[in-house]
Design a protein around this nucleic acid. Structure first.
Length: 200
DNA sequence: AACGCAAGCAACCGCCTCATC
DNA sequence: TGATGAGGCGGTTGCTTGCGT
């Protein structure tokens, strides 16, 4: 296996300083980021390329939208997660200004809450054979998802949830949002993705 | 005011995929 | 066609902050 660049001696780790941010931003604005691994050396940063890339994408990019997630964004995440599973980068493409890391953090904090409140068992790290079965059952639903959202067909599809029904997953959400609209939406998604996956 | 706990967030790590040679 | 390097992704960790007691 390759030796990660981050393991090279002498590279700084941990939180970024304002000065480092400034250096990184000005360098990217001036030269772009053609080669992440060469960038820190060119910019005079004692960081590995991965760290620079992560910092730029998740924090320094000018089009980053910060602050709380809106109701619409939250609903979109829930729907897409139902379809795509833990493919945060794919979900992030449907939420302009939001990063995969941000969405991932958001999901984990909310998911934990829901597990604690409702006691729903979510197969977050389902064994591969379960994922494969789910993929086999839902391959057509993935195509439907891609057509609706304009996104690439997921590899795993609805595999993340395994045997958990959509009503189990969204039960807490319906309570929180106190709206029958979501129930209708759930039925809609259920019809498209779950039923089509089973009947295909 | 001090302490403990939980939530939120930034960042790292390891693996995977893809491009190039 | 296999080896290698670079980018990208998801899981996880650990620090910070806010809140309750």
């Amino acid at each position: 296996m390759k030796t990660p660049c981050c393991e090279r001696m002498g590279l700084k780790k941990g939180p970024w300083t304002a000065e480092e941010d400034q250096i990184l931003v000005s360098h990217i604005q001036r030269y772009g980021h053609g080669n992440w691994r060469a960038l820190p050396k060119q910019a005079g940063l004692l960081r590995c390329g991965k760290s620079c890339r992560l910092r730029w994408i998740n924090y320094l990019r000018p089009d980053i939208k910060r602050g709380k997630f809106s109701k619409e964004e939250e609903d979109t995440i829930l729907k897409l997660h139902e379809i795509l599973g833990n493919r945060w980068s794919a979900i992030a493409t449907s939420l302009p200004g939001r990063t995969d890391n941000e969405i991932k953090n958001f999901w984990h904090t909310h998911l934990k809450k829901r597990i604690q409140k409702s006691g729903v068992h979510i197969k977050g790290n389902a064994p591969s054979h379960i994922l494969q079965e789910a993929q086999a059952n839902s391959s057509s639903s993935s195509s439907a998802a891609s057509s609706v959202y304009g996104i690439n067909p997921p590899v795993v599809g609805t595999g993340f949830y395994g045997a958990v029904s959509s009503s189990d997953i969204f039960g807490e959400t319906v309570d929180n949002h106190s709206s029958c609209q979501l129930s209708e939406e759930m039925e809609f998604w259920y019809n498209i993705f779950i039923k089509s996956g089973q009947t295909s």
